[in-house]
Simulated assay, not measured.
Amino acid sequence: MLGLCLASSLSALASSMRVTDGNGDALPDVVIFGISEQADVSADTGEASQIHIMDQIERQFSPQLLVIRPGDSVTFPNSDSIRHHVYSFSEVRPFEFQLFARGEAPKIDFPEVGFVTVGCNIHDDMIGHIIVSDVGQTYRSIENGRVEGITLQPQLAWYFWHPWMSAAGYGPLLVAEHLEDDVLTVPVTRPPEREASRLEQRFRRRLQHDH
């Protein structure tokens, strides 16, 4: 079953749109993707499965968002010098990788369509999202916030996501609820820079000293 309600969908198609943040400024790198409203069971796309990577770098998931197909797998390599404890309570695919060190890369498959939120049991500010979509086409806004050549079929539920949304506590949101006159407003602004922990500061000083 999907982790979020897919009842809302777009009533009209759009060939282009402009994406802005909460201040009305152009916002690049917003990902727009669709999910079938009937996608409540495992989906067989007939395509060969792929392996994706969600790395852990400087106590953050990288990338913070993956859009994959049903049946694909994701590996979680640890590129940090500290251990991580990666988990998800998402209904679509709950899992847990207990403390694992640098160089280890546990893997898990995602057979069902839906949203998966990933966290680290040690570092609360580590949040990632995995979108398992049976719709092959995704879109991304460019530097001026424009998305051109976009076709949002009304029979699908269309969502959007941007890395700033994690800092504000948002998962993916419905396009239909934030689109007006071909302007998609992402209800966030640039988050403040995260202050490095004492451990990170010591680690960076050590790297500078070594080089």
Rank of each mutant, 00 (worst) to 15 (best):
V19I: 08
Q64D: 12
F160V: 00
L207Y: 05
G136F: 10
R140W: 03
V147C: 00
P191Q: 11
H85Q: 11
P77K: 10
W161G: 01
R190L: 13
L179E: 01
Q98P: 07
V116H: 01
S73N: 13
F89P: 01
E37H: 01
I35Y: 00
L156K: 02
C5Y: 06
V118A: 04
S79Y: 12
W161C: 08
F203L: 15
E58D: 15
L65Q: 14
F76S: 04
Y139S: 08
D109T: 14
E112S: 06
V175W: 06
L2G: 07
S88L: 09
M165N: 03
I32S: 03
G103I: 07
G136H: 12
F160G: 01
S197L: 06
L99R: 15
G24W: 11
Y87K: 04
F160A: 00
N144G: 10
T189M: 14
N23Y: 08
R206T: 15
S141G: 01
L179D: 05
F115I: 03
E143H: 02
A101Y: 15
F160C: 03
G71C: 06
G171C: 07
I32L: 14
G145M: 04
F97L: 10
E91G: 03
F160M: 05
T151L: 08
Q155K: 15
L2I: 12
F97R: 09
G34K: 01
Y170I: 02
V19W: 03
D134M: 10
G128D: 10
V113L: 01
Q38M: 09
I51K: 11
F97D: 11
L27T: 05
S62G: 09
Q60N: 13
E37R: 15
H211S: 14
M165H: 01
S8C: 06
V31K: 08
R102P: 09
E177M: 12
V183D: 10
G128R: 00
I122C: 10
P191M: 05
L27W: 02
R205V: 03
P192E: 04
A39F: 02
Q208C: 07
S197V: 09
P28H: 06
A48R: 08
L199M: 07
L207F: 09
F33M: 01
S8K: 05
C120G: 10
Q60H: 14
L179V: 01
E104H: 14
V175N: 02
V132A: 00
E200Y: 02
E96K: 13
V118H: 00
I127R: 13
Y87H: 10
N23Q: 14
R102D: 11
M54R: 02
V175L: 02
H85R: 13
S73H: 14
S133R: 05
L184A: 03
S42V: 12
S73Y: 09
G71S: 06
I108Y: 01
T45H: 04
F160K: 00
I68Y: 00
S62H: 10
C120Q: 07
T75K: 12
T189D: 13
L156I: 05
P28T: 01
Q98M: 12
V135W: 02
T151A: 13
F76E: 09
G34C: 09
I82C: 13
G149F: 05
W158S: 05
H84R: 10
S42H: 06
R205E: 15
S8N: 11
W161T: 03
W161M: 15
